[in-house]
């Protein structure tokens, strides 16, 4: 097979189509996580609004005064929400790590894509992927700390200078550096997992080293495919936001339409996430494949 960008995207997309049941599984887990975090908010909203005419005003348009009063009245409840979010995100991340093992297994061996194979892959690679997750977290934390320190340095340098434009440009550059760092950690972490999934390697740091070397040797195609998949994901969000503007807030049955649209975007984003891994497995296997010289046997 000639490995090129078009081929890798087409074949990887087909893989998602063949394994759509796992996309549904990821959507269900995402929905359950979100539901757990929505129920307390819904309870507070119902308690506050269920017998009030403000409910009608909110249907006609947003009432900012209501929002600040609601935030003040339920301050103690709402202050606990971030901790609940962090807890659910923690559990969700562990579940995703499990799913990732399954996904890489089935993308590696497309013919073995039964649910059992998926869960077997999840169990088999979970611990190794978890270790990579921890290393990624340390690197992400370092990226954010560097970002904060750079911010402090810029604040110190420009405090009371009135040189807002340079301050703004440097702050923007700081975020570009942050995005590059996050992208680099993500792509290395992804390929380290793909390497483990494909070769069944037990050595974590060796996998990271090999994935860095792999990315370095095949930078153009690896980065371009990664970037294109990211662009596809961004396009989905742009299309959603354009359509969402035209959906009226009232009457309430438009809420159903908005909800369906939102869930379509969520499923699309999960599919894009699968596409990242699918392309990565494809590229990793094909670019690492041994080239066998054709043997010409002459018939006498």
């Amino acid at each position: 097979m000639i490995v090129n960008i078009k081929n890798s995207l087409i074949i990887a997309t087909r893989q998602i189509y063949y394994n759509i049941k796992f996309l549904l599984l990821m959507w269900v887990s995402n929905s359950i996580g979100a539901l757990v975090l929505t129920i307390p908010v819904y309870y507070l909203l119902t308690e506050n609004l269920s017998r009030s005419l403000v409910s009608d005003r909110l249907a006609a348009g947003f009432d900012y005064l209501w929002f600040i009063q609601f935030s003040n009245l339920y301050k103690s409840n709402l202050e606990q929400l971030p901790y609940l979010i962090y807890s659910i995100v923690g559990v969700y991340t562990l579940v995703q790590t499990f799913f990732l093992g399954g996904l890489i297994s089935i993308f590696h061996l497309p013919k073995k894509n039964h649910m059992v194979d998926f869960f077997y892959g999840g169990v088999k690679f979970w611990l190794r992927f978890f270790k990579i997750l921890l290393i990624s977290l340390v690197l992400f934390a370092a990226a954010f700390i560097i970002n904060d320190l750079l911010g402090d340095l810029i604040s110190w340098a420009f405090e009371r200078t009135g040189n807002y434009m340079t301050d703004f440009i440097l702050r923007s550059l700081r975020y570009i550096i942050l995005i590059i760092l996050i992208g680099f950690v993500t792509i290395v972490s992804d390929y380290a997992k793909v390497h483990i999934g494909v070769t069944d390697d037990n050595k974590i740091f060796n996998s990271i080293k090999l994935s860095v070397l792999f990315i370095k040797h095949n930078f153009n195609i690896v980065f371009t495919v990664f970037f294109l998949v990211a662009v596809i994901g961004a396009l989905g969000a742009i299309v959603y936001n354009i359509i969402e503007i035209f959906i009226p807030r009232t009457p309430y049955y438009f809420l159903v339409l908005a909800f369906i649209l939102q869930q379509m975007l969520v499923i699309f984003r999960l599919a894009v996430r699968m596409l990242f891994y699918s392309t990565e497995v494809f590229l990793y296997k094909d670019l690492n494949a041994d080239f066998i010289e054709p043997v010409i046997v002459e018939k006498v």
Binding site: L37, L45, S55, L58, Y252, L255, F259, Q262
Partner: peptide
């Protein structure tokens, strides 16, 4: 009235 609560909760859910 549950409309507003439901509408905001759906947004939050997303």
């Amino acid at each position: 009235r549950y409309g507003a609560s439901l509408s905001i909760a759906v947004r939050w859910y997303f």
